[in-house]
């Protein structure tokens, strides 16, 4: 075995640790033997064959891991097709869980970004890029959880990412510009923030519903997103005022924690409403 083949076998043995323990214990030895034989054959055929063998293993690693972990956790035969094309539960619960978790993560990451920017660690351009990526990730996670429950994961995960970037990117930018320009009366700022958040939720819901089901679900999903995001923003602003009045200037940690918890709760409300709007409907057959 030459050096490249030896290194490839070592790397392969390390990558095998990523598989679920049950799969690794049952097939780990055989996998290593088969890979070593494939590499030995490929090495004899030249560098291109060797590279293609290693590339094929890397390419198939992620789908194989998803498949085996799904089978491991859910104790049933799962393929990528069944993972993304079947309904797997109550969309209200999955929506609440997915969007609640996504919003919580978003608040944690936003707080970190805000501190990094304040300390001059990150440039404004990098911060904006990371923020948009964060929005895309949040939306994708929310879309994936709703899609998992409704059998539309392939459509709703990218739709969620697109919807959230559109909604939060455009709306937050508008809000920042408005806050800098408009009279700074608190109630005007509050109304503007609630209105913009409602708009942002409506766009998010409309993109999810529109891409997943076309015009049939666009209206209800937009309404669910708009109302719940508006309620969330209003509650958040009131919570912020209450924290400042009750406790004065708090540490970034305690304020960040309070808003993360709030994000989880308001996200869960929005996710539940979107899950209700996007739930699979029974079709009456006469």
């Amino acid at each position: 075995m030459n050096r490249a083949a030896f290194l490839a076998s070592q790397a392969y043995a390390a990558l095998l640790r990523l598989y679920p323990p049950s799969f690794r214990h049952e097939f780990g030895d055989e996998l290593q033997i088969v890979f070593a034989a494939a590499v030995a054959d490929a090495t004899a055929q030249g560098r291109l064959a060797f590279a293609m063998t290693c590339g094929r293993e890397l390419r198939d690693l992620a789908p194989a891991l998803v498949r085996e972990y799904a089978a491991h956790w859910f104790r049933k035969d799962v393929t990528m097709q069944t993972l993304t094309a079947k309904s797997h539960g109550n969309p209200v619960l999955w929506g609440a869980l997915g969007l609640g978790l996504a919003m919580g993560l978003k608040y944690v990451a936003t707080t970190w970004l805000s501190w990094s920017t304040r300390g001059g660690v990150l440039s404004p351009l990098l911060t904006a890029t990371l923020t948009l990526l964060l929005y895309a990730l949040t939306g994708a996670l929310a879309g994936l959880s709703l899609g998992w429950a409704t059998g539309k994961a392939r459509a709703l995960a990218p739709a969620g990412a697109l919807g959230f970037v559109l909604a939060l990117g455009v709306s937050r930018g508008t809000y920042t510009a408005l806050a800098a320009w408009a009279p700074t009366a608190d109630w005007i700022i509050l109304l503007a923030a609630v209105f913009i958040s409602a708009l942002c939720g409506a766009v998010f819901g409309a993109v999810l519903g529109g891409i997943g089901w076309g015009r049939e679900r666009l209206g209800w999903a937009a309404l669910a997103g708009g109302v719940t995001f508006g309620i969330g923003e209003l509650s958040g602003r009131l919570l912020q005022s209450w924290i400042f009045v009750r406790f004065g200037q708090q540490t970034p940690w305690s304020t960040g924690l309070a808003f993360t918890l709030f994000g989880v709760m308001s996200g869960a409300l929005a996710g539940a409403a979107l899950g209700w709007a996007l739930r699979p409907r029974r079709v009456a057959i006469s």
């Binding site: 799969f23 097939f27 996998l31 088969v34 198939d60 690693l61 194989a64």
Partner: peptide, 11 residues
Amino acid sequence: STGTLYGILKR
């Protein structure tokens, strides 16, 4: 690939 083959064999 080895992962795909043994995934099929397992099932």
